[in-house]
């Protein structure tokens, strides 16, 4: 499991697989004001990316991996 859910923050760590997408979506639905901490994210599946795009959930911390951070920021900021 690479997603840990806290009260207002979900931690996405390592590689987020397709299975995480549904759980993440449910969490976002329950916590519409929740934020995501992607600090230790190394990769996410397309399905998870979709959830981020569709929900426009706020990102509290971008990935420390600059490569991912750059394209993820480009995608998510643009989709807003």
């Amino acid at each position: 499991m690479s997603v840990a859910f806290k009260k207002t923050i979900a931690l996405l760590e390592g590689e987020c697989s397709i299975e995480d997408s549904e759980e993440l979506l449910n969490w976002i639905l329950l916590n519409p004001k929740g934020k995501l901490n992607l600090k230790k994210l190394s990769y996410l599946h397309t399905a998870v990316l979709q959830v981020l795009m569709a929900s426009q959930v706020k990102i509290s911390i971008w990935p420390s991996d600059t490569k991912i951070a750059s394209w993820l920021q480009a995608i998510l900021l643009e989709s807003k």
Partner: peptide, 18 residues
């Protein structure tokens, strides 16, 4: 590369992540 949605996302409740 860039990403764009095929269709509008619609209501989040009815989103099928798969």
């Amino acid at each position: 590369f860039s990403v764009e949605k095929k269709e509008d996302w619609g209501e989040l409740e009815s989103l099928d992540p798969f």
